[in-house]
Amino acid sequence: MGSEVGMEELRKRVETRREALAARMRAALEEHAFTNRALFPPRQLAEFARQEAEAFLAFLSDGDEGVVRERGRALAQQGLSHRSVLALVQALQEVGWESANPEVELWPSLQGAIGRYTRAFLEGYMVAREESILEQQEKTRQALLRALQREGQ
């Protein structure tokens, strides 16, 4: 991670694009709305996009990758699709680049911060997805077994 001053400067820079970030994230989510599961009805996407933009800004303030990992985990559990996640990452990178412009020397630091954020998010998301699939697989097996046992009684 860069110096604290560096991160603060990055945060201020991205903050000037806060609305654009939320809007771009909203557009990304809307594009993939029908790949998500239950907890992301279309009417709530704007609010969710705003929260996601705020989460990145918070990361630029505190650099806490654990919080980001937990966010990725929670969103996987709530049924956010991998397509939505990838679209969010792309939106983040695009707005990040725009935020750095025209002072391109800021871009490597910002790119590094986006990379750390994305890695932590994806790690939490993927671990939770895998856990969820394995857990559901086992629950299905147990449920089938119990139903068959009950039927045989």
Binding site: L144, A147, R150
Partner: peptide, 11 residues
């Protein structure tokens, strides 16, 4: 669906 019922109770 009995499988669904069993699974649901677990959830």
């Amino acid at each position: 669906d009995p499988i669904c019922v069993e699974y649901s109770r677990e959830i």
